[in-house]
Design a protein around this nucleic acid. Structure first.
Lengths: 143, 143
DNA sequence: TAAACTGTAACTGATAGAGATTCAGATAGG
DNA sequence: CCTATCTGAATCTCTATCAGTTACAGTTTA
């Protein structure tokens, strides 16, 4: 299983999309995520480097979205916080004395690349405003 | 990153596809994978329970494919050795006092399901004989 | 009955992630 | 200019998972 960074990243971005009029501190966001502010700051740092949020230190500081939610694809978020390695190759390299062992690496690499590409493509179709809309809908229904 | 079980599973199945006339021991397969026979037997056990290989104990025993390589989809292999949880939700549940925290779980679950489905669908398009053919092609090219 | 396999439990070491503490650096506002 | 309030980042601990290993019971063939 992967890290939960992607889930937390989408979470904090969704909070910022829903409360787009405010600048939110890592303390506040950590309250919603139910974790330590440092965990949130680590992830905000990755999102900042990916150009998805703008962060300002100092009193009254915090973070806000760098662009409107409908222009933030979940695939961007995914790539910002996860290092693309999803499916793993062998821990120690296979035998070079076996035709399969010698060549399986290249064959698998191509297959893995294709499969991971399909996952990213699915995330490419989703944008942050869909997430925000779904949450507003839940909230409006009294949930 | 995920475990390397999928890579090892495809590897041992590929060996069995290439040497389909023989029954192969976990010791032999471990030689090609370059790992411990127990690691191979653990994975063969999962593949056996999924109906992909047939295993026979005793002298002259070992494992062989349960069906022809063109009828073994890589998605079956994936599901046999990995427990579908790819993208992870929050480690500890988000705040129930925040509208986003209360509802993000359901929204993310749907998105994750969709994305993981896309990955599996990509693996569904690939069969073991493609892998075997690619390896034979490499071997024929002197690699 | 002996030898050659598998199946599985149990232990170890390595790695990654989440959480927490701490402190340096930046900034707004008095 | 000084202080309070933020972020950024280093560091440590705890935990879970996995790969590898040893050991041994169960099964089958010859």
């Amino acid at each position: 299983m992967l890290s939960s960074r992607f889930a937390v990243a989408v979470h904090v971005l969704a909070v910022q999309a829903v409360m787009s009029d405010r600048v939110l501190t890592s303390d506040f966001l950590a309250g919603s995520v139910n974790t330590n502010p440092v965990v949130v700051r680590r992830i905000l740092g990755m999102l900042r480097r990916a150009g998805l949020v703008v962060v300002q230190p100092g009193p009254g500081g915090g973070s806000r979205l760098a662009k409107p939610p409908n222009r933030i694809r979940l695939a961007e978020v995914y790539r910002a916080v996860e290092k693309g390695e999803l499916l793993a190759l062998h821990k120690s390299p296979p035998s070079r004395f076996c035709p399969v062992g010698r060549n399986i690496g290249g064959v698998l690499a191509e297959i893995f690349c294709d499969a991971e590409g399909a996952l990213e493509k699915a995330l490419e179709k989703r944008s942050l405003d869909e997430v925000a809309a779904a949450i507003k809908k839940c909230a409006a229904a009294g949930k």
